[in-house]
Nucleic acid binder design. Structure first.
Lengths: 221, 221
DNA sequence: AGGACGGTTTAGGTGCGCCCAAATCCGTGT
DNA sequence: ACACGGATTTGGGCGCACCTAAACCGTCCT
């Protein structure tokens, strides 16, 4: 059993969501969290979780939450790999702006053959990170997360490397890219206001004020 | 009304099929021809035709056949444009072999945003033909077919330009590409057997025997 | 004109993925 | 210990796209 993993788009989306919440939440993922993330009603989630359980992709304990099985995690990883490879492809080869690739990849990831995915990976030189700095699972579907800190918690005067930011909010991404702040650049924290206030970073000679939410979403090292 | 054309994958597939059969058959397309081409039962086609009629994408006269409306043709053209742009993209930028791009594009074409499609077109230099020599509808969704003859009907001694071949049969495409016979090359008919027998063409110094079905599928000028 | 036959449509059913509303569970606070 | 309230599940429906089987239409042939 190494290749019986074709799944519907909906199933792939659920597995991706469970995976994402599992890593953020530690422990079984509650139904409502999934419903929120996927933009469907809790009732719909309940029904799908039953199916995922029957398919052996997740273990769902009633009223407790859901956990991925090894097989479910593989499907999630495969989808994540496709997603991130596509994002990089769109940015590198097709000049799609940074902030638009996520939605596009979200659709394409479900209709990509294994063969094409690997061809894309080869063309891109077997990349390890997507344009937002998110790690791309290996061909063997292993994923290693990097240690990062939130930009929020960096002290004044510290100089750090901007590693990663969520791909979910196009407005944030546009704001950052307009200022040349993309994963890989070096930032120095020049000033910092408490209580979600703005944080000032110096980069390539210019100063930029970053709102609390933005700073919280940015991961650095 | 210039942009209200989001349609399901199934609808797009039906419209593409109706368009293809309309040009080959002249006149309303019979239900069974569609069922054959789409690999579904006539009953399913009947149901879908009713929907296409209601949506204003096709006109279906009971027991007579179906014809595309202007709007239906536009959707078909849009899908065809995406399909052929994708085929070219896969061959040119991702080194996917000629004979595999069709199936891949068949899936991707339904989940491509307008924006991405146009970005691909731009990257490829607004191409006019796909890798099989099929014309790509313009951005305005106009399509101009070239005059072609079947290779079958070429006399011995004539020299012609290979223009186009159906993308539907991977085995045929592999056979041709292995011999360097791709759209654009010049062929000289060296010999010709009647009754679907082989046809010998000379190309770049070598002779190749092409079976009757193959010769019939190849379009030249 | 009368049938027979092929092409077509209708009728009834399935699975997926979603919705809403009602019932149920469970932790918490009193 | 119990009831309250939020989280969760169940039940009943809907639309899409497909299926099979049976009824239907129309044409061509006798």
């Amino acid at each position: 059993m190494d290749t019986p993993l074709p799944a519907s788009s909906a199933i792939e989306d659920y597995l991706k969501a469970v995976y994402a919440l599992e890593t953020r939440l530690e422990g079984p993922v509650p139904t409502n969290a999934l419903a929120d993330r996927l933009g469907v009603t809790p009732g719909s989630v309940s029904g799908m979780l039953r199916r995922l359980d029957e398919l052996g992709l997740a273990e769902h304990e009633r009223y407790r939450g859901v956990t991925l099985t090894a097989e479910g995690r593989r499907v999630a990883m495969r989808t994540l790999r496709r997603h991130r490879l596509l994002e990089l492809l769109l940015v590198e080869l097709l000049d799609v702006p940074w902030d638009r690739v996520h939605g596009e990849a979200e659709l394409l990831e479900h209709v990509l053959s294994d063969e094409l995915a690997e061809r894309i990976a080869a063309k891109l030189g077997d990349p390890e990170f997507d344009p937002h700095g998110d790690p791309i699972p290996s061909r063997e579907l292993d994923l290693t997360e990097r240690e990062t800190r939130s930009l929020e918690e960096i002290e004044i005067g510290e100089t750090v490397c901007f590693l990663r930011v969520s791909d979910a909010d196009p407005a944030m991404l546009r704001y950052l890219s307009e200022r040349g702040i993309v994963p890989g650049v070096t930032l120095t924290v020049a000033d910092r206001q408490p209580f979600g206030g703005p944080l000032t970073v110096r980069h390539a000679g210019g100063d930029h004020a970053l709102g609390g939410q933005l700073a919280a979403a940015m991961r650095v090292a």
